[in-house]
Design a binder for these strands. Sequence first.
DNA 1: CAAGAGATAAGAATAATTCTAATCTGCGCT
DNA 2: AGCGCAGATTAGAATTATTCTTATCTCTTG
Lengths: 132, 132
Amino acid sequence: MSVVARLRGVGLRPTRQRVALARLLLEKGGRHITAEQLHGEARAAAVRVSLATVYNTLHQFTEAGLLREVIVDPGRSYFDTNTSEHHHFFDEGTGELLDIGADVVVSGLPLPPSGTQVHRLDIVVRVGPERR
Amino acid sequence: MSVVARLRGVGLRPTRQRVALARLLLEKGGRHITAEQLHGEARAAAVRVSLATVYNTLHQFTEAGLLREVIVDPGRSYFDTNTSEHHHFFDEGTGELLDIGADVVVSGLPLPPSGTQVHRLDIVVRVGPERR
DNA sequence: CAAGAGATAAGAATAATTCTAATCTGCGCT
DNA sequence: AGCGCAGATTAGAATTATTCTTATCTCTTG
Ligand SMILES: [Mn+2]
Ligand SMILES: [Mn+2]
Ligand SMILES: [Zn+2]
Ligand SMILES: [Zn+2]
């Protein structure tokens, strides 16, 4: 399905900026990207878009289910083009996120606190350079 | 062991500020606290300490293994007085962290990317108000 | 108790993000 | 095709959490 159709499908007007950002984000697979990085890619691709719009767009896309936010770094938000349920390796040195594609099973979890329900379960495996 | 002895044990001078913060943090169990919150508690307890020192101290305590940093919120760092291996419920509404005390078992994890080794594995179960 | 390394504090600086309010544009309607 | 306007974009200011700077203070050791 075209990017324009996907945007219409989630109720977002296919503006020049949203179409361009959606192309950068969604037409390659498995991306984990920050707002600054995406803004940089847009500029590199000669797409004129403000940083405010990049932030707006990332949040709207997330809201609409086209992206997922991954929280691994205090003070930096990553957005993930893989919206299926999955987990991550996070390299604290390079700041790189890597999908864990395999089926991971968690057992032994207690029930959530009463009055609350589980919204999401995130596993982050923090890795660093091998040292011995 | 006294707070002063614990500080000496990890090579930190027991200054007035560090002793007071350590008392607030370590003499009650199971705390998950931000720098601002701890600064507020210190002020409430008539401990004169600057916010910069609270940040310095939290990082030094973490470095020294007296605390653990928990990353669940972009733009806010939580520090955990429970330094044993454990996981968390995080209430996105209230910003509250709750320890998962039970033994949780994760199976099916692939090996870390080559050249890296696992430093830590964090599970965050994000919960919200029950809605139906 | 003097000296000096290390610690603290106030405020400036930084970084990521959000807000404001002015301008622009996609799109339904004629 | 042109109008009108809700919704979108923008530049820059504002906000928030955190870190940095540098002058002043205070533990520790002799
Ligand atoms: Mn956000
Ligand atoms: Mn930190
Ligand atoms: Zn991912
Ligand atoms: Zn905890």
